[in-house]
Design a protein around this nucleic acid. Structure first.
Lengths: 132, 132, 132, 132
DNA sequence: GTGGTCTAGACCACC
DNA sequence: GTGGTCTAGACCACG
């Protein structure tokens, strides 16, 4: 099975973290359904061209968060997460990032109007980049 | 001279980075004018209750970025940065953070409307928190 | 891996600077290829008989200049620098030093002919010293 | 008396050193004749807008080198330097700087032809800059 | 007084 | 194993 995850060795973010964020997003947005079987550690490591240690950490972290479930000798599955929990999760990550961005703006004395303008500019840029 | 910087030893962000971000914001928002003399490394270290070396690193990093200018035996000053460069700098940091937040949202399949809603919610929360 | 760098504790130049200059030269002259893995900071520190921290500073400074790329837990690599950038870099350092020498000459009223004579004399001396 | 010395607070070179180099050049090139009376420490400090401590150091360093001569209560004079000593001095500084430049070039594997080319380019640039 | 360099040593995070 | 952060403390150079 092919997991649509992009990682960058040149990013400041650690590998394991890049993978966790994207895998979590795939699950919480419903692109990986509950009960779905994930690739084995070795297989995913090969797909992403990284170390098995890194993937092992990812699976373990997400299992600790209750998002994955590992059954010995069988594999790793998407756990049952309640719909409301799922919704909260989804928006929480975004909300946190938004607040971070807004705080950055406030530190350099942006007004609310400026912040909104910057939000729109950022959205525009991201959407443009998507098409290309 | 008293520099309004708050640091947290419990944060995941390294000390030096917390200080850099806030100091940069003070300068780029004009709260520290061009040519202003900053506290000596020893003094700021005492103010923030951290090591001289940590402050030295902060000053040096910002000097490498062209924001500060240090002269041995004299002190550390806010460098002359052109106004346009300053403006770009100011919004760049915010724009980058905004894009990061938006990408997080897109990964969990947020629509533009949802993103805007989350932006407004985050702004509201931050502003409420400010008053308290 | 053995890196051919000579340092002198008696020099007025700081240790970290001597190392930076020579390492940069090794990279920009192509003796260390793009993507090459450098010795670990601990290893190079041992080779050069200096502190780990001094080497760390070297690697970090060169990373800030975009010449190196370090990845935590993995190592430090020669970054991908465009060939033209590399060429410019290569000659820039020399050109700057040449101009400095020429300015010194002009201050003591050397004519162009004298400067050229001195250049040839210097080149001769350096080449002679090399053989010995 | 007006001494034609330019200093820059933004230079990496320490103030005292910038002044020493230029003052030495003025003397060794004959622009300040043997026996000439230099400005007082306070006066030169005012002219160059720097600390008297800095000028005191300059005069003292050059006196230690035998280039200046101070008489208590009278002032500081250009010392008697033999003509050959003067000539050696003159070319020594240039030769040293040239060798430094050449060594930089050799580190990045410049051929002799390239070095000569760079020398000519540098000379051209410096002369062009002079006219402007 | 200021900043600049170098040291040793500890502890953490990543792969 | 790797690099990343933070510490304390010493000594030097500059103004």
């Amino acid at each position: 099975m092919r997991i649509p995850i992009q990682i960058s060795n040149d990013s400041a973010e650690p590998l394991y973290y890049q993978i966790e964020v994207q895998l979590k997003a795939l699950i919480l947005s419903g692109q990986l359904a509950e009960g779905a079987l994930l690739p084995s550690i070795r297989e995913l490591a090969q797909q992403l061209a990284c170390s098995v240690i890194t993937i092992r950490r990812v699976y373990q972290d997400l299992e600790n968060e209750g998002i994955l479930r590992t059954r010995q000798g069988t594999g790793t599955f998407v756990a049952n997460v309640g719909q409301t929990a799922r919704d909260n999760y989804r928006t929480d990550a975004v909300l946190t990032a938004m607040k971070e961005a807004i705080l950055t703006g406030i530190r350099v004395k942006c007004t609310d109007a400026e912040l909104e303008e910057l939000f729109r500019a950022a959205l525009q840029e991201v959407r443009d980049q998507e098409k290309a």
